[in-house]
C-alpha cells in the first residue's frame, strides 16, 4: 500500500509538466493583484479566464481568486500566494481522474469535487513538506 502510494506520487510528479492542454477550470472572481503564469507568459487574472493544467496562480499582498474546476471542485486563493495546478485529469463520463495542486506559498481553501468523490486519495495537495489527500471535504492549507 505504501509503496503503491509512493509510486503514485512519483507518477504524479513526472506527469505534471506533460499534462494535456485543455480547459480544467476557470477564474470566477479576482480581487487585487493576481496573475496566471503559463510557461513563460504572465497574464493578469480576469474573471472568466480559462485555466489549464500546469498553470501557476499568483496573488499579491491584496490579491484573491475564486476558481471553479470541471469536476465541480472549487478553490479560494488568498493573498501572497503561489499555487501550481500541477496535474488535473478528469473523465466527464466516468468521473474518474486525479489532481495535484502545489501550494508553494500562501493560503488556499478547497472544496473537493467529483475526482475526490469517485476514487480515494486522487485529489492531492502538495506543500513543501507534505502531501495531502482530500477525503471528501472542505479544508484550508496555509504555507507561510
Amino acid at each position: 500500500m505504501r509503496s503503491t502510494l509512493a509510486a503514485g506520487l512519483l507518477i504524479a510528479a513526472s506527469l505534471s509538466t506533460a499534462a494535456a492542454a485543455g480547459e480544467i477550470g476557470r477564474i470566477k472572481s479576482v480581487a487585487g493583484a493576481a496573475q496566471v503564469v503559463r510557461g513563460a507568459a504572465v497574464t493578469p487574472a480576469a474573471p472568466g479566464q480559462l485555466l489549464q493544467a500546469s498553470d501557476v496562480l499568483r496573488t499579491g499582498p491584496d490579491g484573491r481568486l475564486g476558481i471553479t474546476f470541471v469536476d465541480n471542485s472549487r478553490f479560494a486563493v488568498g493573498p501572497n500566494s503561489s499555487i501550481a495546478l500541477s496535474t488535473f485529469e478528469f473523465d466527464d463520463t466516468t468521473h474518474a481522474g486525479r489532481s495535484l495542486t502545489t501550494v508553494n506559498r500562501g493560503s488556499l481553501a478547497i472544496v473537493s469535487g467529483q475526482i475526490a468523490h469517485e476514487n480515494k486519495d486522487t485529489m492531492r495537495v502538495r506543500t513543501p513538506t507534505s502531501v495531502l489527500a482530500a477525503r471528501g471535504t472542505r479544508f484550508v492549507v496555509v504555507v507561510p
Partner: peptide
C-alpha cells in the same frame, strides 16, 4: 509559523470528511 492544514465543517451541513497527510 509553520505550514498547516485545517479541516472545515462540510458545506451546507454536509459531513466534514477528512484530510490525510503523507510523507512526500
Amino acid at each position: 509559523a509553520t505550514a498547516k492544514v485545517g479541516l472545515l465543517p462540510g458545506e451546507g451541513g454536509a459531513p466534514a470528511g477528512a484530510v490525510a497527510v503523507f510523507d512526500p
